[in-house]
Design a protein around this nucleic acid. Structure first.
Ligand SMILES: [Mn+2]
Ligand SMILES: [Mn+2]
Ligand SMILES: [Zn+2]
Ligand SMILES: [Zn+2]
Lengths: 154, 154
DNA sequence: TTATTATATAATAATAAATATTATATAAAA
DNA sequence: TTTTATATAATATTTATTATTATATAATAA
């Protein structure tokens, strides 16, 4: 085994679901389970290429989609560009910089959120509405990007 | 004037910002300020075409983007397909059906959310991080779509 | 082991939403 | 009206993502 619990969890799920573990797949899982930067498919592609220069982007998409369908990665749709992937599936939200695209994790109190969900949302929806996933995003400008963009104050 | 307060608010903003009010633009604003269905650009396009059959999709995109930049409509990025637009800019979240794409408004308690934001988020971020917008989404299956999709239980 | 079958990958082509370009039309200003 | 700026329409382009097909690899059976 190894010391990354997310990696282990995903490998166990992969095996349980009967998917085979190819070198490319393992590398993709390693990258996504270790990264904190919420990479795009292309980002993952470029990393995998370092080890497997012949890998195709299609393989990246296929594997990331598969992992998303297994709920082992989360897809983050940003406003400006492509889908970003998150190997951290614990309860949290994201602060997304609209200029540089940086995505920062935002802690969400589980009790607050669950309470919010149970009381405020669940009873508003059709009783057989099934929630499977959530997203909490804050869009804005990160520290580095939000310096000099105030509308000319002369 | 007229009886739709959102429409009025947008028209005032348009005038204040010095944009001219063309018939197509007015029609787009009417549609988005009256709709409760979170239409896509194509949906709006098809509605506008009923009055102005020669309208171009580019005009729809240009106007919706402009309204979004004025914060008079909200863009909703869904997981499966295109961007959806919301003329209701009041504080609320969305329940998004992953099968049929229907988007239902979800009430958010302002006090809860503001408190959540102020205490839990603002102090986690760089002090000059500027939040400009937010999104709260719940993905799942609506009542109509979530009937018979449980993995064959025979 | 080899043969067979299923699955994954690579290379390529296709899709479609969104954007850019350009020309024309309309609105605002002089 | 004449001039200038802005908006629209028609078209072309971009680009992320998906689909297709052929090849390669992995799993399974013989
Ligand atoms: Mn994250
Ligand atoms: Mn809404
Ligand atoms: Zn930034
Ligand atoms: Zn549905």
């Amino acid at each position: 085994m190894n010391s990354n619990p997310r990696l282990n969890a995903i490998l166990i799920k992969i095996k349980k679901m009967g998917y085979s573990l190819t070198p490319q797949r393992l590398e993709i899982i390693k990258i996504i389970s270790e990264s904190k930067s919420h990479p795009s498919a292309t980002d993952v592609y470029n990393k995998v290429k370092e080890l497997y220069p012949m890998v195709s982007l299609n393989t990246i998409y296929k594997n990331l989609s598969m992992l998303a369908s297994l709920h082992e990665v989360k897809e983050i749709k940003t406003m400006q560009d492509s889908v970003r992937y998150d190997g951290d599936i614990s309860l949290h939200g994201h602060a997304i910089c609209e200029k540089c695209g940086k995505i920062i994790d935002v802690e969400i109190d589980e009790f607050d959120f669950k309470g919010f969900f149970e009381t405020k949302i669940k009873n508003k929806l059709d009783e057989n509405y099934r929630i499977r996933n959530y997203g909490v995003e804050f869009y804005g400008l990160c520290g580095g990007c939000g310096k000099e963009d105030s509308p000319s104050k002369t």
